[in-house]
Computed example of a mutant assay.
Amino acid sequence: MKRKLLGVIDATTYHDDLEDLLTHRSLAALPFAGRYRLIDFVLSNMVNSGIRSVAIFPKMQYRSLMDHLGSGKNWDLNRKRDGLFFFPSPIVDNDDNRIGSFDHFAANIDFFYRSTQEYSIIANSYTVFNTNFRSLLEWHIQSGCDITEIHHKDGHSMEMYLVKTSLLIKLIETRDVTGYSCMKDVVNDLHSLYTICHYDYSGYTMMIDSIQNYFSTSMNLLQSNVWKQLFLKEQPIYTKVKDEPPTKYVKGSSVQNAMIANGCIINGTVENSIVSRGVKIGKGTVIKNCIIMQKCQIEDNCYLDSVILDKDVKVEAGTHLTGSARSPFVIRKGTKQGALMNS
């Protein structure tokens, strides 16, 4: 398996509806579940499938993504042979959301020429799921497919494709002749010369493409049946490890049905919420149905319901912020929110 599958992650996608959370980062680097980033899921799936060579193709705002992944050590991808590779796009057009752009691949064609893996799995970076690609590869080979597109059980494409590396190279090299610009063009061509197959994946899957979708998916993690489908002991989701002290729960604080990461100080009440590392919640403050990202400070006597605070946000004492499940209140990274601003 180590020599059979090459991992290719397209991290170029930008969704306008997530703009408030993507001003300083790529979608792949969007924080999720308190201590992860969205890319952690597909990358961990690849590593758990025995893939030892993974190429990341980002486009814009990828500094935080590179900082998060580093050398790939936390995914056991910091190796002398193969490992983790970054290939930023030379194309600045931000309106192109095609997964697996052949122009982007062509700018780094030498990587594919040097690869020794017989097959390539091309995947997006924003799907929350947990699978092992070994079963997909076996099914693909037994079915005699040229290209396999992964579908969810509802019939929708998951924008992930399995193809022989040699065929991928051919598609890249002949893109100007065939008119194929990406993998989607190939699989959607009714007159394609290739055998196109659809593989149905029945496990839990969510593709994060909007604020509402991000919020609801995050809240669903607080249900044990959903959590158990995503975080499997035999197939762990890896992420960047940070050494921080345990969270301190001050006397009088109250926490119910919440995910609290390390390094926090909780003085108030937290219910049905996800709180990331290093967050400080003041005395008398109530947090309900919220996503609080890293190093936010929420002072005393605040009330937050259905709110998303991006990293490093400061909420001043006495502030009341209320959104809804369909339209959560979003505060951008590094800003200050006060009671007077909200009045």
Rank of each mutant, 00 (worst) to 15 (best):
I260K: 01
R277F: 13
T269A: 07
Y303D: 03
Q256M: 06
N267G: 13
K314S: 15
K240S: 08
K248N: 09
I298E: 14
N301H: 14
Q297E: 14
D305G: 11
A258K: 06
C296D: 07
K295R: 13
K314R: 15
T247E: 01
N262W: 02
E299D: 15
S273F: 10
I281M: 09
I266Q: 01
R277A: 15
M259D: 08
V286C: 13
V313Y: 05
G263R: 04
P245D: 00
T285P: 04
L309D: 08
D305M: 12
V270D: 06
V241K: 12
I281G: 08
C264F: 04
I260C: 03
Q297I: 14
I298A: 13
V286K: 15
G278Y: 09
N267F: 08
T239A: 08
I265K: 02
I274N: 08
K240W: 03
I298S: 13
Q297D: 13
T269H: 08
N257Q: 09
V275F: 06
I260G: 03
I291V: 14
D312W: 12
C264Q: 03
S306Q: 12
I265V: 09
V313E: 04
G268C: 00
V315C: 03
K288G: 10
A258Q: 10
I266C: 00
V275S: 07
G284F: 13
I274R: 05
N262Q: 13
G268F: 02
P245E: 01
S276L: 01
T269D: 04
I265L: 02
I291L: 15
N267S: 12
C290S: 14
V307S: 10
A261C: 14
R277V: 13
M293A: 15
R277G: 10
K288E: 15
K295D: 14
T285K: 04
K283N: 14
S276Q: 03
G252P: 01
D300N: 15
L304I: 09
L309M: 10
S306K: 10
I265E: 05
I265P: 00
I274K: 04
A258H: 09
K288M: 11
V270G: 05
I291W: 12
D310F: 07
D312R: 09
V279G: 07
K283G: 05
Q297R: 12
M259Q: 06
C290W: 03
P246E: 10
C290K: 03
S276K: 02
N289I: 11
S273Q: 12
I291T: 09
V275A: 08
I287L: 15
G268L: 00
S276T: 02
D305I: 11
K295T: 10
I265H: 00
V313L: 03
P245N: 01
D310S: 11
K242A: 05
M259W: 11
N257W: 01
K280S: 15
T239H: 14
S306M: 04
S276Y: 10
A261P: 06
P245K: 00
K311Q: 15
G284C: 11
N267T: 04
T269K: 12
Y303I: 06
C264A: 03
D243K: 01
I292M: 07
N289D: 15
K242Y: 09
C264H: 03
G268S: 01
V286S: 14
V315R: 05
N272C: 06
I260N: 03
I265Y: 00
I274S: 07
Q256F: 10
P246D: 12
T269W: 02
A258P: 09
V286Q: 13
V307Y: 12
K248H: 09
G268N: 00
L304M: 09
D310A: 13
T285Y: 04
